[in-house]
């Protein structure tokens, strides 16, 4: 990881010094362990703040929406796919960006690690594939592959799909991954079981919209949940309203979601929000052979209309 950091700082400094970008968007150490924060570096003297480790799960594409300046952006596989989507959806222009690609080996799951210990985790260090977790009175070595975020363990796009600079050599993509076992398990349920499953899944939701705010796809000036004329969704904790929010948000992401996991990461009550989007990702793959953010010049299937589109659902 140290090699990554040096290279990221070196590239960032060069881009800022040469005036190719006005700002570099990257990560800096957070005030709590495993909580790296986005950082906006505007002069090359500050590049030493930039870090890289297995706690950089936030999707930086989220910070590129409607920016006017020239930006250097650190992009792992999923960020780069969201950048592609952003370019397609006019959120930023390609020539505004210098994409610093970071081949990714997966991010670790803060929630999983915290749950392993009774007391507070004070320090987390990593070396190679070993992650050392320290707290008051304990120190434990963990294997990184055992504590990856769920989406990272199923990722087949670790390398950026679009980049101008590379912070490290490309990594080998994971092969023979069954990405949709969980979706198939739910698909196989009876309607009653499914209903119960989703009821239980979203029961803890407090509608804080953290998932929406973390998602690079949710950039509408007025989100449908905030719209009052007409009011599509009630503002209360009514179950119907909560369901409407989750279902509709998932549909808005259909064909665009890169499974970056930002929503799940952001959820303060630990809802597996990706259960909604994964199903639609699978459907897009099955029905249209489509994966979001991979093709730089093709719009997602739900953005296009052809008279010959599958229409079996209309009876």
């Amino acid at each position: 990881m140290l090699g990554y950091i040096d290279k990221i700082r070196e590239i960032s400094k060069r881009l800022l010094d040469e005036g190719r970008v006005d700002m570099v968007v990257g990560f800096r150490k957070g005030s709590m362990p495993m909580m790296n924060e986005p950082s906006f570096i505007k002069n090359s003297g500050e590049v030493s703040k930039l870090v890289w480790d297995s706690n950089c799960g936030i999707n930086l594409a989220n910070y590129l929406t409607d920016r006017k300046e020239k930006i250097g952006v650190i992009a792992k596989g999923c960020d780069s796919r969201n950048i592609v989507t952003h370019i397609l959806e006019n959120k930023i222009k390609r020539d505004q960006l210098v994409i610093i690609g970071v081949p990714c080996k997966g991010m670790i799951d803060r929630r999983l690690i915290t749950a392993m210990f009774d007391t507070e985790v004070r320090e987390v260090n990593e070396k190679g594939d070993t992650v050392t977790v320290k707290g008051a009175g304990f120190e434990k070595k963990l294997k990184k592959s055992d504590i990856l975020q769920d989406n990272c363990s199923k990722c087949i796009h670790r390398n950026p799909v679009l980049y101008d600079e590379l912070a490290a050599p490309l990594v080998e993509e994971q092969k023979d991954i069954d990405r949709y076992a969980e979706v198939r398990r739910i698909e196989a349920m009876s309607p009653q079981e499914k209903w119960q499953y989703f009821e239980d899944l979203i029961a803890p939701c407090i509608r804080c919209y953290a998932c929406r705010n973390a998602c690079p796809l949710c950039y509408c000036p007025t989100c449908f949940v905030d719209e009052s004329r007409p009011q599509w969704v009630g503002k209360s904790q009514d179950e119907t309203d909560i369901r409407t929010f989750h279902f509709l948000r998932a549909y808005h992401c259909a064909g665009r979601c890169t499974d970056c996991g930002a929503c799940e990461r952001a959820c303060p009550v630990g809802i597996k929000v990706r259960q909604f989007t994964s199903k639609l990702n699978k459907d897009c793959l099955d029905m249209f052979g489509w994966e979001a953010g991979v093709l730089p010049d093709q719009r997602p299937p739900l953005d296009t209309f052809k008279p010959a589109d599958p229409g079996d659902f209309i009876k």
Partner: peptide, 20 residues
């Protein structure tokens, strides 16, 4: 005022009616 410029309308319209 509410438009996000995402271009779905431009892409999806069979009659090329929307534009930026």
């Amino acid at each position: 005022a509410v438009c996000s410029s995402c271009g779905v309308c431009v892409s999806i319209c069979p009659y090329s009616a929307p534009s930026f």
